[in-house]
Amino acid sequence: MVSFIIEFVRDLISGKSPLRPPGAFPEKEFLKKCIKCNKCAQICPYFSIQMAHIEYGKSMGTPLIFPREVPCYVCMKCPPVCPTGALKNDVVNKEDVRMGIAVINEETCLPYIGIICRACFENCPIFREAIILEDEMYPKVIKEKCIGCGICEKVCPIEGSAIIIESAHNI
C-alpha cells in the first residue's frame, strides 16, 4: 500500500511522457497547448487514441496511445483537427511524424535467437526504410526514419513484445 502511494506520488511529480498522437509538440509544450477537447480521439477511426487518467498525474485528460493495444495507423486525420495546434496542424505526411522510436530487445527477438520472423519488418508503414533486415535475417531500426507508430510493437508475436516504442519525449 505504502509503496503504491510512493509510486503514485512519484508518477504525479515526474509526469510520465507517454506516446502522444502524431504531430505532438514536446511534452512540456504539449501540456500547455492541449485543451482536452477530445477531437483527436474522436476523429481516430481505429480508436488508437485513448485518454490519460489519474496515473498520468497532471496530464490526465490528454490524448495518448498504447501501441500494444491499438497502435497508430498513421492515417493522419488527427493533426488537422487540433484547434490549439498541440498536434502540429501542418504534419500531413506520415514520414514527417516523430512520435517515438522503436527499440528492439535482442535477447527476446526471435531472429536473434535463431527463429525466422519478419512480423515487424513486413508491417512497418515506412516499408524497407524504418526497419531493415540485416543479412536478410535480423531486423534493425533506422532511427532517422522510424516514426514511432507502434505497429511493430503490436504485431510482435513475443509476449510483451520484443520491439517497444520509446516515446520521443523521453529521448
Binding site: I35, K36, C37, K39, Q42, I43, P83
Partner: peptide, 21 residues
C-alpha cells in the same frame, strides 16, 4: 462513424465551424 460534429465544450467543430471556449 458520423464525424460531422466532433469535440466537447472545451472546443467543438460543427461541420467545419470551429467554436472554442
Amino acid at each position: 462513424e458520423i464525424w460531422f460534429i466532433i469535440g466537447n465544450l472545451y472546443s467543438i467543430t460543427i461541420g467545419g465551424l470551429d467554436i472554442v471556449d
